[in-house]
Computed example of a mutant assay.
Amino acid sequence: MIDQNYRWYPVYTRSRAEKKAYDELTRKGIQAYLPLRKTLKQWSDRKKIVEEPLIKSYLFVYISSKEYTEVLMTNGIARFIYFSGKIAAMPDQQIDHLKLLLATEEELAVFDYEIKLGEKVLIKAGPFKDMVAELVSVHHKKRIILRLDNIGYAIEINTSMAFVEPI
């Protein structure tokens, strides 16, 4: 039987401490979820596929309010995430959806800002790197149409929204 007082809560970790905090939470018997994605990293001498957090400095704990303090006393945990003055709780379904999303082979891009149509953006990667453009439309977050200031044309670019940022 599932205790109705248990809920998923996002917690903020210290920088680059997600895996250590997750390990310590599970050692304490606290159910935690750290969404990881595989990514190819390249160094000067080699390439390697590594698992890194999908959302930097975040992990999720399934606890009751009695365990708040125990979570905060875990090495690597900085604080709970608050929304409207209360500790933010997440529906079980959102965690399930996140797990399903990560189970697919789709390449995921996570960014923490919202870019609206008509907004000026800076292109951070690819052949148009460092150009300023206007976001005209977005197709499935992979193909975006940008109006490039320099040439006055709109160009559809096959890139991720992760490679543009608002100015």
Rank of each mutant, 00 (worst) to 15 (best):
L98G: 01
L122S: 01
R147E: 06
K19E: 14
Q42V: 14
K56E: 11
L59H: 03
P53W: 00
D130M: 01
D96V: 05
I157V: 11
T39G: 07
K99C: 08
A162D: 14
Y12V: 09
Y33R: 03
I145R: 13
R46T: 07
S137N: 05
K28E: 02
S137A: 04
I145D: 15
K41N: 05
M131P: 03
L148K: 12
V121L: 06
Y9I: 04
T69H: 12
R27T: 06
R27W: 03
R14F: 09
K48Y: 00
I157S: 05
F163W: 09
T159C: 05
L36N: 02
G85S: 02
V138H: 05
P166C: 11
I81Q: 05
A78M: 04
R37Y: 07
F163Q: 03
V132L: 07
N150M: 15
A125L: 07
I155M: 06
Q31G: 02
L101Y: 06
K129T: 13
D149L: 12
Q94P: 03
V71P: 00
R27Y: 03
E107F: 11
I87T: 08
P10C: 03
L40I: 11
Y22R: 02
E134W: 07
I87S: 06
L59N: 00
L54W: 09
K41T: 04
K38I: 12
F80C: 08
L59W: 07
R46W: 09
K129M: 09
N5W: 08
L98M: 10
R7M: 10
H140S: 14
A17K: 02
E119F: 13
I144K: 10
L36Y: 08
E107K: 12
I155L: 11
K99L: 12
I77C: 05
A78S: 10
E70D: 11
L54A: 08
A162C: 07
V110R: 14
M90C: 01
N158K: 10
Q42W: 13
D130E: 07
A88D: 12
